[in-house]
Design a protein around this nucleic acid. Structure first.
Lengths: 150, 150
DNA sequence: CGAATATACTTGCATATGGAAGTATATCGG
DNA sequence: CCGATATACTTCCATATGCAAGTATATTCG
């Protein structure tokens, strides 16, 4: 197998692994916490942001989503009270998305669930070394991206 | 970092890497070949299937998608002539999706493009060993799934 | 200062997708 | 053989998403 094919194979497998994980983890997470995976990712970005708040445009970059997607994802989260809107006194164009107390609580709970499910996924077929190696290699992709989760 | 957190970190990074790759590779692929990534994945499954054909239900399992999604993805592909519909003489419920000559051609071209873009992604920041390691580890996920791409 | 440009966000439109219900066919158990 | 159940597919409805256009505000440059 040439280098080119190795890169290609890695990309294809990443796509497959992702669609599997989404199908495997998404529905249980939603049924337990009422949160989609993408909604959780949004809330997690807020949870680790300074002041628990981010501009929509920055959130979009962190989530690899469009601005309109962020605008509309924020609506139901506001309804349920997990985030609230805040304006910037120095720039009237900006509408921050701010994590509320309730939002912080649901993130913690949902992250616990996702952590458990992740552990379960690897249990019995992976060594600690392999898991760490996979995380490390994937980190080489994500390290350069905005919104890295430490 | 505990084992649990290592699994979780790997899963989170996989999500992030995937959304990045989709944003990075999808649009160029679509503009060059007029094919979305998911459409290409569907055609690739057909390209490697016996007789270049698959039942919709099997295609859905391979793509981690619902049956209705496959039904509707096939429609524009039929319009453009990349696939055609075929029935099973022994089971009238089945409607095969069959790759056409034109479909085979577009898969080859689009795969070439994706291969090049994948290579470009890793160039200059990854060693051959790292790429192979990443592909190998991801393969531990995907190996057990239906529709593994060899 | 003021016009041109850039930025942040929202909205309209088109596409993509899942789940549930509906239809047709096949298989199973008595 | 026949009713009950299972399977394959499609369609309906609701949600999710991107892009382009629209609105409001900021910044830049002459």
């Amino acid at each position: 197998m040439t280098d080119e094919n190795a890169s290609y194979a890695a990309v294809l497998r990443l796509f497959r692994a992702q669609s599997f994980l989404e199908a495997r983890l998404g529905p249980p997470l939603a049924s337990v916490h009422g949160l989609g995976l993408n909604e959780l990712m949004l809330l997690m970005q807020l949870a680790r942001a300074p002041l628990h708040r981010l501009r929509r445009v920055d959130l979009a970059a962190m989530l690899n989503a469009s601005q309109s997607t962020v605008t509309r994802m924020a609506l139901p989260l506001e309804k349920t009270g997990f985030v609230k809107r805040e304006s910037d006194p120095r720039d009237a164009r900006v509408a921050y998305v701010v994590l509320t107390k309730a939002g912080r609580a649901i993130v913690d709970q949902a992250e616990d669930t996702l952590r458990q499910m992740s552990t379960e996924l690897f249990r019995d077929r992976w060594t600690d070394k392999e898991i760490a190696a996979l995380g490390g290699l994937l980190g080489r992709f994500t390290a350069a991206l905005p919104g890295e989760i430490p």
